[in-house]
């Protein structure tokens, strides 16, 4: 039986509006409907401080604040440091993944990805659903 709250608030962060739309729709296909959006790290950080989210799914390469900078800010914030944080990015070199892992990312998905991969990683972070 699923222990995951499918109505949990999720924040998705990407500077490409098409990618935001893709992730939102794939999350909807998986049953998650409470999804907010931000188009860079600083806007996302503001939203995270204004409202309680249970998961962040963020791109890496964004201006002015990147996903990596957002992750660093989140992990340094006493109220947000335990927040599950998944990076979905085209940055696919080993050094990228290691840097993100060392910064405290919960899981890492390389673009392009599919719904099955997204579901697997969400399950790994949130539990099976």
């Amino acid at each position: 039986m699923s222990t995951v709250d499918m109505g949990m608030p999720i924040l998705i962060v990407d500077d490409y509006k098409t990618m935001l739309r893709i992730i939102r729709n794939l999350l909807k296909q998986l049953g998650f409907n409470n999804v907010d959006e931000a188009t860079d790290g600083s806007a996302a950080l503001q939203k995270l401080r204004d409202k309680e989210y249970h998961l962040v799914i963020s791109d890496w390469n964004m201006e002015p604040m990147s996903g990596m900078q957002l992750l660093t800010e989140v992990r340094a914030d006493t109220k947000l440091k335990e927040l599950p944080f998944i990076m979905i990015t085209a940055e696919s070199k080993t050094e990228n993944v290691i840097a993100a892992k060392e910064a405290g990312v919960s899981n890492y998905i390389v673009k392009p990805f599919n719904a099955a991969t997204l579901k697997t990683k969400l399950s790994a972070v949130l539990g099976n659903f």
Partner: peptide
């Protein structure tokens, strides 16, 4: 089928980068 279309549309982000 709709899910497959959304997945495939990820090309726009990759080609853009």
């Amino acid at each position: 089928a709709v899910t497959s279309i959304f997945e495939a549309c990820g090309f726009q982000d990759i080609t853009g980068q």
